[in-house]
């Protein structure tokens, strides 16, 4: 179990370093960096490579934004399995809903609770 923490730390850290290199060396804006990472996550899942990484590193692979792309593809494929090609469209947000809905709900609550600074 301690090994799990260690690898979550290392894998999560490495993904963040990749993001930092994209920002510092290739001079991309954060929005570009995050978008590219999400796309990379989706492509990795297309080749079936992201799931083993989650098995190995747990939160180290599910917490970085790359897992967002992975989850989108996953939901789409799951649904496509059941309902054929239409499922690709309808199943997309099946798995991912947590991150987005949490961001929307807490974002609004945050706007109610806190005042802008400066």
């Amino acid at each position: 179990m301690m090994a799990m923490f260690f690898w979550a730390f290392v894998v999560g850290g490495i993904i963040c370093v990749i993001g930092q290199i994209m920002m510092d060396v290739f001079k991309l804006t954060p929005a570009h960096t995050l978008s590219i990472l999400v796309v990379v996550g989706a492509i990795l899942d297309g080749f079936g490579l992201y799931e083993p990484l989650i098995d190995f590193a747990g939160a180290g692979a599910t917490i970085p934004i790359t897992s967002f792309g992975n989850a989108l593809v996953h939901g789409a494929l799951q649904e496509a399995d059941r309902h054929g090609i239409i499922g690709v469209l309808t199943g997309m947000f099946e798995v991912t809903s947590a991150g987005i809905s949490a961001a929307i709900v807490f974002g609004f609550i945050g706007a109610l609770l806190f005042r802008p600074k400066g």
Partner: peptide, 9 residues
């Protein structure tokens, strides 16, 4: 074992 988790499935 941790190193075999990649092949878990």
């Amino acid at each position: 074992k941790q190193m075999d988790r990649f092949r878990m499935r």
